[in-house]
Computed example of a mutant assay.
Amino acid sequence: MSAIMHVVENAPVSTTTDAKVSDSVAKSIGATPVADKPATRAGMFSLRPFFMSVVPPIFGVLFLVLVWEIISAKNSGIPSPAVTLKSAIDLFADPFYSNGPNDQGIGWNILASLKRVAVGFGLAALVGIPLGFMIGRFKFLSGMFNPIISLLKPVSPLAWLPIGLLVFKAADPAAIWSIFICSIWPMIINTAVGVQRVPQDYMNVARVLNLSEWKIVTKILFPSVLPYMLTGVRLAIGTAWLVIVAAEMLTGGVGIGFWVWDEWNNLNVAHIIIAIVVIGIVGLVLEQILVGIARVFTYEDVKN
């Protein structure tokens, strides 16, 4: 008996043999043998993630087009998707034509709006981010500026437009001023919150090592605050793009907002719908660019 056990213990393991023995044992007791899963199934390429990422958005767009078609069929003033598509093809056939200051292609209007956003947003970043660091770093400044931020942040950006027109005496800098004042609050608040949430242990180590304020900012605060700061920047760019459209409707000149208002005066609803889609696409692209930057410069847990 011991010799038999020794042979069994030292016998080489065979998956095929074990499977056959298991099947024979199952048949002997009247059970149905379990079929082996195909070995290639685990290694097969699954198309499910691809379909789940592509098919739902396609159905969403089709649903939107269907609703649009139904509304246009019941309301003759709203052009159908086919009519709007034809207008879009004609419009983007020459997006950069220029027949004077008040008659320019949609491409020039988009570029003019982006230029205003870039200037106003850049000025807001230059002022808001350092101010957020100081407010988060020094308790006195936090107590000093918190009431001001709480009072001014809820004010609509367009309410600042008359002040800009009064101060700058021109529409273009007034629109930039509106972008600046609406973009600065998310940057200040998110940056200050990021500084205040830096672990106290880090600051204690910096105090023990007698680090200068510059090294504390560059070596401790900035890497820790960067995810919060980029979140504020992303929120600010979305708000800035919303504000410029409304501001240009009021100030006139070249810009996508003025172009929409001008097309409304011409009762060209198809061009208004095209402008809405273009505004959405540009805003989405701007946000995705900043999301990509945030993914590069932040840790994995912040990315998710």
Rank of each mutant, 00 (worst) to 15 (best):
G30I: 05
L151R: 08
I244L: 07
I273L: 15
P147M: 04
K219R: 14
T17Y: 14
S87T: 11
A170W: 01
I188A: 00
G30C: 07
L209R: 11
T40F: 10
V61D: 08
V208N: 09
Y202W: 06
P199K: 12
L123Q: 03
F133I: 11
I189Y: 03
P162W: 12
W160G: 03
K86Y: 13
V195T: 03
W214P: 02
G30Q: 06
N265H: 09
T218P: 04
V302H: 11
M187C: 00
L221E: 09
A112E: 00
Y299V: 10
M1E: 14
G136P: 02
F222L: 12
W259I: 07
K139W: 08
M134Q: 03
M1T: 13
F168L: 06
A159T: 09
T15A: 15
A42D: 07
W177D: 07
F59M: 14
I163K: 09
I135V: 03
S80I: 09
A270G: 04
I273G: 05
E69L: 15
S178H: 06
I184Q: 01
A88E: 04
S24Y: 11
G164M: 13
Y202L: 07
Q200N: 10
V205N: 10
S24C: 06
K139L: 12
F121D: 04
Q196S: 14
N304Q: 15
A31G: 07
P162G: 04
D36L: 06
L47E: 04
E287P: 03
I272Y: 09
W160A: 06
I135P: 01
L267H: 10
I256C: 08
D262V: 08
P56Q: 15
I220W: 08
I184S: 00
V8H: 11
V282T: 08
S76W: 12
R207S: 06
K20H: 13
P147G: 02
E69C: 09
F168S: 02
V193Q: 13
I106C: 03
G43F: 00
V277W: 13
L114N: 03
K20F: 12
F59L: 15
I220E: 05
R207Q: 10
L64Q: 10
R48T: 11
